[in-house]
Design a protein around this nucleic acid. Structure first.
Length: 885
RNA sequence: GGGAGCAUAGCUCAGUUGGGAGAGCGCAUGCCUUACAAGCAUGAUGCCGUUGGUUCAAGUCCAUCUGUUCCCACCA
């Protein structure tokens, strides 16, 4: 037969197909009262860099879900966009500027922001084009950016409302401060490394002169800010020391008196079990201080020198102060010793100087009231996590949630809409105010700080639909259906979206949260730029096509678990694409000219049993796959389709119908079934591999416009046919038995033999007679001879006999028979069947089992017992016959 | 330190309310059978991490231990 379809699958047409989809607007969604909405908001990728393999995985999942829903008749909206990623992007741009030896401060705020916008345009654009190359079906007309005009307005609106309600306030908070660069730095800019350090041991005298309490510190200069000594509540050693205070003996005439407090934070096993508490210069101490209402004494200027709170040490650098304090303590006999230790040090990744925790005034969002409905949404079951275990992470975090520090000392982001007059009044307004609301002063300066990047991400599910305006989109598409993301941002993002949604929309932003795992490298390590073990998803797309990459992500994986990236897996997926391609090619080669219109869709009643079988199987597949999609189990859904196509459709059904295709009379109906089953498979697979399925669908259905908006296959109870499935199982078992013997006896494929089948009842006779033609071709036999079932059973001289379901099968292979081996084979079969029967009998005679096991299970076991018993009888009969000869 | 996973064939992994252990790769053997060698057929391989418990029945549920990974926080 002739065909111009290439022999191998070639993904190079993907771009062309995608362009066509865009031109025809298949991904657009709009308010449509005729349909139910299904909405996904993309987790906006950061414009810090191009896409990595994690994004590719994340978006493949979303695309599969949205494509399935679109086919199922929903108005499926997937809103795309990108995130400004405040600190992360700023850090990237600062790094890039450093290469040009440009300092951010020298450049100035405005010029710096211009550079960041250029960065954003570059990477934002790259990200979008990469998503498109992956076949992502977002509604691109609705693309948003967290700092575009509309979203920025929504952010300011949110801030103003929360401030007016008293939920946003200013308060002190420790930040990481770099004294060299004179700036706060984020946790992600701190490099932790173990370094040599010195641990100094001191003692503070008790204020009543009755003794001392010893402690140790690596930073003696912070003693100037000490406001307590803490011990573990159950530490007996200090039980008698309460009631009197301690003296910080560094302030000459006016020594500072501080309390001894109990706090479980202290590890009694470590050192003396007593810890100095410096709330203004240590994160842990800050928290201890909060619990005990300790004063916070800031002792340091922004340049790292000691300030006026340091008494006589004021003006010294931190190193100078440290040395002086050791000297002074020693002079008073309060210095015990010093020792070398290794400990973790935090340094700024730019200048490598030690980071100093300092207290700064920050903006906070009060969480107590906001968190309650968010927690309630989960505990009431309204907000569902997949897997459920991720919900526990969400719950746990909300239970221990603290107020959220929303200000950042960086330039890239939404500038805080707070304005200060010279008298220090604060005016908060989403639009720049002309005068101070308190005193009317017109000399207003805006807060220098910007908002935490998650503040804008938190309102993403509704800001993208036009909020604060009451748009029809908001009304129709909100709340969205599913959020697909990774577990590391459950706190940062999922929680924030939930309470923001509840607060401003009065409803949760999504009903289902699908948490997926991380894509690791082949050795199970996290991919990272510095290690250089990353896989570029676009490289895979270039080489194999987007379909293959997507399939590799989903086929057979449990998406909620971490998964390793293996090229072998990619190859397998490529091979499957090729298999599918060739299956369609085979159908098309046979169907030339016959595709349109005339394909008979007979009532299943009159179809041959193999057609009933495949239709029943594909029907069952529809049911399973739809169910798996609904429960977000994409890995299993995909695997079911792949297995069905390769195993049942290609390896069995196609081989079964080949004889019918050679006969012009039986051919059209066979083609009809082939096209029908294959089309169904293409639809089911389309959400996972959109390109190849579109290509083949259009080839098989020339009248159709696209598979993207075709209808999802529907389960049809009338096609379910357990009897046909059982019948074909039996045929398959018989075929496998023959093939096994042929392989075992090393019968050359060229040697065709006749199959002789002796059915043992009418049903079996009918089945094998119907299957006669393909039974022979599947077994590579010249012909299958079916003996009358009611004839007297007689052995066939010089033939190997084989017990198959409902029949005895003879293979005339006289020259190849080894009597001893045959006997052994039969004995082995007898043993196997006997063991099966024993196992079943053990169960059926177990009183507990009979009393408590479900009835259908018992019935099934009984059924199997009957089958095994019949086969055993045949085998034993064969063994007897052989012995008689 | 707080939280959460994972442990099943040589390798990578599935295994849905408990009901006779699966796939891919790899391996062995034979095939270019007129869709596909990116293929077809056949085959071998498992005390389902340890110990105990619940149950008629445990890879599956509970507890324990061992190993391992991740998230958050941190070592005065």
């Amino acid at each position: 037969m002739e065909t111009n379809i290439p022999k191998h699958y070639d993904p190079s047409r993907e771009n062309e197909i995608y362009t066509r989809w865009l031109e025809r607007g298949y991904f657009r969604a709009s308010v449509n009262p005729e349909k139910k909405p299904y909405t996904i908001m993309i987790p906006p990728p950061n414009v810090t860099d191009k896409l990595h393999v994690g994004h590719a995985f994340n978006n493949t999942i979303q695309d599969a879900l949205i494509r399935a829903k679109r086919m199922q008749g929903y108005e499926a909206l997937w809103v795309p966009g990108t995130d400004h990623a405040a600190i992360a992007t700023e850090v990237q741009v600062v790094k890039a500027l450093a290469k040009e030896e440009i300092n951010k401060k020298d450049l100035g705020r405005e010029a710096f922001l211009k550079r960041v916008w250029e960065w954003k345009d570059l990477y934002g654009g790259t990200i979008i084009s990469q998503l498109k190359k992956m076949g992502i079906s977002c509604d691109w007309d609705r693309e948003r950016f967290t700092m575009d005009e509309g979203l920025s307005a929504a952010v300011l609106e949110t801030f103003e409302r929360l401030y007016n309600e008293g939920k946003i306030y200013r308060g002190e908070r420790l930040v990481n401060w770099c004294v060299t660069c004179q700036t706060t730095i984020s946790d992600s800019e701190i490099e932790h490394e173990d370094g040599e350090g010195t641990l100094y041991h001191f003692k503070y005298p008790k204020s009543d002169g009755s003794g001392y309490i010893a402690f140790a510190t690596t930073r003696p200069e912070t003693m100037l800010g000490d406001t307590a000594i803490a011990v573990h509540p159950e530490d007996e050693r200090y039980a008698d020391d309460f009631g009197t205070g301690l003296i910080v003996p560094l302030f000459g005439e006016s020594p500072r008196k501080i309390p001894l407090i109990k706090d479980a934070y202290v590890d009694p096993e470590y050192g003396t079990g007593a810890v100095k508490i410096t709330p203004a210069h240590d994160p842990n101490d800050f928290e201890v201080g909060e619990r005990h209402n300790l004063p916070r004494i800031n002792i340091m200027n922004d340049d790292g020198t000691i300030n006026k709170n340091g008494g006589k040490y004021a003006g010294l650098t931190r190193e100078e102060a440290r040395n002086q304090i050791i000297e002074d303590m020693d002079a008073q006999g309060l210095f015990i010793k010093k020792e070398k230790i290794t400990h973790a040090k935090g340094a700024h990744d730019r200048c490598h100087k030690v980071v100093e925790p300092l207290i700064k005034l920050q903006w906070f969002l009060r969480m107590d009231e906001l968190s309650k409905p968010a927690l309630e949404a989960y505990t009431s079951g309204k907000l569902k996590f997949h897997r459920e275990r991720y919900g526990r992470i969400y719950k746990h975090w909300l239970e221990i949630v603290r107020d959220w520090c929303i200000s950042r000392q960086i330039w890239w982001g939404h500038r805080i809409p707070a304005y200060y007059c010279p008298s220090g009044h604060v005016t908060v307004s989403k639009t720049a105010p002309s005068a101070c609301t308190a005193c009317g002063s017109t000399e207003l300066t805006q807060d220098e700080d910007t908002l935490d990047t998650w503040f804008s991400s938190g309102i993403w599910p509704f800001s993208t639909l036009g909020w604060p305006d009451k748009t029809p989109e908001l009304e129709y598409f909100y709340p969205t259906n599913v959020l697909v993301t990774a577990q590391e941002i459950i706190f940062n993002w999922v929680v924030r979206m939930t309470f923001m949604g509840l607060k401003f929309m009065g409803d949760i932003p999504f009903t289902d949260v699908l948490i997926h795992g991380t894509v690791l490298d082949a050795h199970g390590k996290k991919m990272s730029k510095s290690v250089g073990n990353g896989i570029d998803p676009l490289e895979v797309v270039e080489k194999y096509g987007a379909d293959v990459l997507r399939l590799a992500f989903l086929n057979g994986t449990a998406i909620e678990n971490d998964t390793r990236f293996h090229w072998e897996r990619v190859e397998f997926c490529r091979n499957f694409m090729n298999k599918l391609w060739n299956a369609a090619r085979f159908v098309l080669m046979n169907a030339t000219g016959a595709l349109q219109g005339s394909l008979p869709v007979s009532p299943p009643l009159h179809l041959p049993i193999e057609d009933k079988w495949i239709l029943s199987r594909v029907n069952g597949l529809i049911c399973e796959v739809t169910e798996k999609f609904d429960s977000h189990d994409l890995g299993m859904a995909t695997q079911k389709i792949v297995d069905f196509i390769w195993d049942e459709f290609c390896d069995w059904y196609v081989e079964i119908v080949k004889p019918r295709l050679r006969n012009e009379e039986t051919k059209p109906q066979a083609i009809g079934i082939l096209v029908r089953v294959l089309t169904t498979c293409l639809k089911l697979l389309h959400p996972v591999t959109p390109f190849i399925t579109e290509d083949l669908y259009l080839a098989l259905k020339p009248d159709e416009e696209t598979i993207v908006r075709s209808s999802w296959p529907v389960y049809d109870p009338a096609l379910a046919d357990p009897a046909a499935e059982k019948a074909l199982d039996n045929i398959k078992e018989a075929v496998r038995g023959v093939r096994n013997i042929r392989a075992d006896k090393q019968v050359p494929p060229a040697q065709k033999i006749t199959l002789i089948i002796q059915p043992h009842d009418r049903d079996a006779s009918e089945l094998y007679s119907q299957a006669k033609a393909y039974l022979a071709s599947l077994c590579n036999a010249s012909e299958a001879e079916i003996r009358p079932f009611d004839a007297e059973p007689s052995t066939v001289e010089g033939a190997i006999s084989l017990v198959v379901p409902g029949a005895l099968l003879y293979l005339p292979l006289a020259s190849l028979i080894d009597t001893e081996k045959e006997r052994a084979r039969m004995e082995k079969e007898r043993k196997r069947l006997t063991q099966e029967l024993e196992r079943i009998d053990a169960k059926l005679s177990n009183e507990g089992y009979m009393a408590k096991a479900p009835a259908n299970l018992i019935a099934a076991e009984r059924g199997k017992r009957g089958d095994f018993a019949a086969m055993l009888a045949k085998v034993e009969n064969e063994i007897r016959n052989a012995a008689e000869e």
